[in-house]
Amino acid sequence: MSTHITLKSPLVSVEWLHDNIDANNLIILDGTINKSFDISLEQIPNTRLFDIKKKFSDTSNDFPSAFPSEEQFQKEARILGINNNSAIVVYDDKGIYSSARVWWLFKAFGFNNVAVLNGGFPAWKKAGYPTGLMQHYDGAEGDFVTDLQSGYMKFFDDIQQASKNETYKIIDARSAGRFNCTEPEPRVGLRMGTIPNSVNLPFTNLLENGQLKSKKELAKEFYMVAEKDDDIIFSCGSGITACVLALGAEISGYKNISVYDGSWTEYGTLTTGNMEQPKTWTKDELLAYILMYVSNSDLNESRKEQQYILSRVDKVVYTRVKEQFKKDSDYTSIQNIIEAVEAHDYYRNDLADLFADIKLMAFADGDYDPMEQMIYSHLKKILKDG
């Protein structure tokens, strides 16, 4: 067996890893996201923990898993003993999920002798291969040197230009429900929506039992959304599963591919969206709108009522909701509220808290007048009976 290996594919099987595990330049990384060191946890022997969140992300950034600097990536890679001549195989505990992000990061920093373990740790265990307990790497530092490659990562300004001019094909890896705004975003406070001119290819479409599908099956998935010569930007929720699409695309022979680092978390936060589509409102936007509806029932939103609303939602949210509220008729306002409440599944969750907020706001100016009482009762009946 060769003691020095060069990876010929961005994907390796557990059988291949088992046969080559003693190669002297092999480094195995666990790229499971949000994983903390725990000596009781099982791992593939001699694995080193690649901490995406704390070590290999720009933690000063407002958005999760943000692209690190060259200096940070090089320093942390060296601490893990990674050398310029290393061969890296990365896995995660889900099959293929965050491991693809690790693979893409190395490629973005100019290192190509890296591959994802197909099926990850679950496939390794299923095959009956040996495991060990998690351990810290305490060996020598590596000599890894970054060589940042342009175009691998796209950022907010890039995506704004690409979406407006359609210079790129933007492909979103989120579920169809999130892409089509029929299910809320899992991140609290993040509005539903899509990047303009984007198309949907859920990353789960590329997987079967936690493993990447065959090259032929992958090609079929990508054929439906992009041509081989398209310039492609992959997006998702926060830049993690977009890299699964990048992995599948590279295996399928696509060359002009990139990943939007901030993805929908950044884009949905930095853009106002379309307030004319209530099903895409965040819960904060909905709360602001309902409180405005009640406070304006007497055609006068008092200063104390305004202060109460601003104590519950951000000023930026208040301002954009206020602009929409001014445009809407009384009938439109009720329809908007019903549609937004249904989108957030308030019926089974926290409708009671919503009504408590409404009543507290109405009392904010010390005068719960008959009109506010009537509006409150009217809303309660409509929403509970809806």
Rank of each mutant, 00 (worst) to 15 (best):
V321W: 00
S329C: 01
V316D: 12
R320M: 08
K326H: 02
D328W: 05
T319I: 10
Q324Y: 05
F325A: 00
S302Q: 10
Y318V: 08
I309M: 01
K327E: 12
E305M: 03
S302K: 14
K327V: 12
K304C: 00
Y318S: 04
K315V: 14
S311P: 11
D330A: 07
V313Q: 05
Q307N: 12
K315L: 14
L310R: 06
T332H: 13
R312G: 06
T319H: 10
D328N: 08
D314L: 08
I309S: 00
T332A: 14
Q307V: 09
Q306F: 01
D328C: 09
R320V: 13
S329E: 05
R320I: 11
R320Y: 10
Y308R: 07
K304M: 03
T319R: 14
R303S: 10
K326I: 01
K327D: 11
Y318W: 12
K304Q: 00
T332N: 13
F325T: 00
K326G: 04
T332V: 14
Y318E: 07
S302M: 13
R303F: 11
T319M: 12
E305K: 02
K326T: 03
K322P: 04
F325H: 00
Q324F: 04
V321K: 00
I309Y: 03
Q307L: 09
T319W: 10
E323R: 15
R312I: 03
E323K: 15
Q307P: 04
R320H: 09
K304W: 02
V313P: 05
Y331S: 15
L310V: 07
Y308G: 06
K326E: 04
K322I: 02
T332W: 11
Q307F: 11
Y331Q: 15
V316Y: 11
S333N: 15
S311V: 11
V317C: 11
S302N: 11
D330H: 12
K315N: 15
K326Q: 07
K304R: 02
Y331P: 09
D330T: 07
Q324R: 08
D328F: 05
V321Y: 01
Q307A: 12
T332R: 14
S333F: 09
Q324G: 01
R303Y: 14
T332Q: 10
F325R: 01
V316Q: 11
K304G: 01
S333I: 04
V321L: 01
R320W: 10
L310P: 08
F325G: 00
E305W: 00
Y331R: 15
R312A: 04
E323P: 12
R303L: 12
